[in-house]
Nucleic acid binder design. Sequence first.
DNA 1: GTCGTATTTAACCCATAGGTTATTTAACCG
DNA 2: CGGTTAAATAACCTATGGGTTAAATACGAC
Lengths: 134, 134
Amino acid sequence: MPLDPLTSTFAALADPTRRAILARLALGETSVMELAKPFDMSLPAISKHLKVLEHAGLISRGREAQWRPCRIAPASFKQVDGWLGNFRRFWDESFNRLDGLLEEMKAEEAAKAPPHTTRKVRVKKEKQRGRTRG
Amino acid sequence: MPLDPLTSTFAALADPTRRAILARLALGETSVMELAKPFDMSLPAISKHLKVLEHAGLISRGREAQWRPCRIAPASFKQVDGWLGNFRRFWDESFNRLDGLLEEMKAEEAAKAPPHTTRKVRVKKEKQRGRTRG
DNA sequence: GTCGTATTTAACCCATAGGTTATTTAACCG
DNA sequence: CGGTTAAATAACCTATGGGTTAAATACGAC
């Protein structure tokens, strides 16, 4: 029974070894051996961690001779950030204050700055704060 | 042995029930009873989930007669977002493209926006940090 | 083929996470 | 006080997660 994506992703992130592995991979793709070095832990343990990360969509693995180079995979990170976005107003002051205006400015500027940008900056208009205590 | 904050926070988020509780709380603070309603689960189970969330710093709880209203607590969310920031360049295109420039513009613009209106909006100079979703 | 290196799989152990029911604490009300 | 509601705790059960060692697999070199 497969867990939903967010659950397996958060579960994968809930381990310091795996987060350290991701931090290492942020510096560039590398082998299992290389990844294992910093840890006082058997290789099979690392292998398991990598499997968890892969299953969570946080890394992907290639094949290069007998090495299996690992690299960061973006999708799950993006999904986590998307989920976090639902709560951003609770802790990001600027999200509630200037961002409406500034994001517009930004979008405007972005629209004419790059010669051919296919990217559109979406402007989210967050009008009212969630009133606590009804 | 207490887990480091990120670990307990991610662990807390790695459960759909708890994420659903947080989603409900994003709408406003409420009681345990109210939080429990949508779930086909005993009250003690919910109580445990709330304890996990509280321990992870994702919610805080008050006291109002016999109710223990729960509400979102920002700090841990912020910390997760901060950690995610280390990887943002992998999935946020704009983070690698325009954001450096645009965030500067933003700060600049914001800095002179409130001419001398004492009570306007405070702007903190941020390090470059892309946050365009989409 | 055989050897060497990199990595995974298998089999196992133990701690803990998530659920249960039954009991207890806390606070209001009459 | 006793009764009712809200919530937490206790005791328990089972599945899973993170680690181990030993064995198997995949690939390149010879």
